[in-house]
Simulated scan of single mutants.
Amino acid sequence: MNARQAPEFPRWPQYDETERDGLIRALEQGQWWRMGGDEVDSFEREFAEHHGAPHALAVTNGTHALELALQCLGVGPGTEVIVPAFTFISSSQAAQRLGAVAVPVDVHPDTYCIDAAAVAAAVTPRTRAIMPVHMAGLIADMDALAKISADTGVPLLQDAAHAHGARWQGKRVGELGSVAAFSFQNGKLMTAGEGGALLFPDTELYEAAFLRHSCGRPRDDRRYLHRTAGSNLRMNEFSAAVLRAQLSRLDQQIALREERWTLLSRLLAAIDGVVPQGGDVRVDRKSHYMAMFRVPGLGEERRNALVDRLVEVGLPAFAAFRAIYRTDAFWEIGAPDETPDAIAARCPHTEAISQDCVWLHHRVLLAGEAEMHATAEIIADLVARA
């Protein structure tokens, strides 16, 4: 018997006349790069204000945002950056491309966020940054991580690519006292196809990043007096105009996703063998970049087959991230002096999650209650068969 077909879900990206008006506004201002136009500057002010940060810097993409932030924090050859073993590969590659060693540590089995105890055990005199990833918009344990940072002097860099608009104990991402990096890639909660941004807690770091993102050249330079090494990571005016429109509807979308996840996670938890991503009561606003769940013990091969079947019936489903140390890319440059199996031995939760976890695109959570019930019924049917 064939599984029922999934209902229709809202499309992504979403847009309306607000984006169209912004693009025309950017076009007609006659200057299409940030040094002559107004859109990037305006977006940075609005994004910083929305997240409670003194400064925001818009850049070309989220990976570049991480790389730029790490460079400003002193990461380079001979240094180490602690990253979660369960994350998208950009988290580690941003450090590795600077010549640093990426040190993977395990994550919490319930939240899928970096484990603070594992972080504390991994800090060495060479550690220059600790990079928590707010997985699926669930903010990592920032209290414990902030204490580790204070005790060791190692700064935090929040990988907030999933966490636009999220809050930790009432504090927005920009109010947590550390640099945060965001992505605006096509699937993200706000998108211009590509793009990224950094939030800074102080002016000194912001100014250093501004220089490096513009080839080391000051804003008012007319003599090509490049002050520091850098690259061209500047966002263009058209992307910023689109992102200003995307930001305007972010809160409304998050509120709907929170409501729908409350229902869907309850329905998923009632399915035999299914465990939805857990929460943390201190996260009083999760942005829900992904709707994640595990089928413990399923194994990678059967998990992948389950994802294929979910896609066949119309659910926008994906296999969870592969453990970064289980990819060829991780070992090309800046890898620790260990074997994959040695890292796996101290990352048992990452090993399990990466083999039995499934996620659904966040557009599922923009649908109605009936669609949540239909989604859970399909998952229950196909998990039973798997």
Rank of each mutant, 00 (worst) to 15 (best):
R4T: 13
A6M: 03
R11F: 09
G30I: 13
D38Q: 08
E39W: 05
D41A: 10
D41S: 12
A53M: 01
A58L: 13
G62V: 06
L68C: 13
C72T: 15
G78T: 10
P84G: 15
T87L: 08
Q96W: 11
A102S: 15
V103R: 14
Y112S: 13
R126A: 15
T127P: 08
R128P: 06
V133I: 10
V133S: 11
L138Q: 02
D141T: 05
M142Y: 10
P155A: 00
Q158I: 07
G165H: 05
K171F: 01
V173S: 09
G187H: 02
G187F: 01
A192S: 14
G193D: 03
G195T: 10
F200D: 10
T203W: 13
A208M: 12
R212W: 13
A229N: 13
E237K: 10
A240D: 00
V242E: 03
V242S: 04
S248G: 11
Q253H: 13
L256S: 04
R257V: 08
L264K: 09
Q277T: 14
R282P: 05
S287R: 09
L310N: 02
V311G: 08
Y325L: 01
F330P: 01
A335V: 05
A345E: 12
A345R: 02
H349R: 06
H349L: 04
Q355R: 12
Q355V: 14
L365T: 10
E371F: 04
M372H: 02
A374K: 04
A376M: 06
E377T: 15
E377D: 08
I378H: 00
A380C: 11
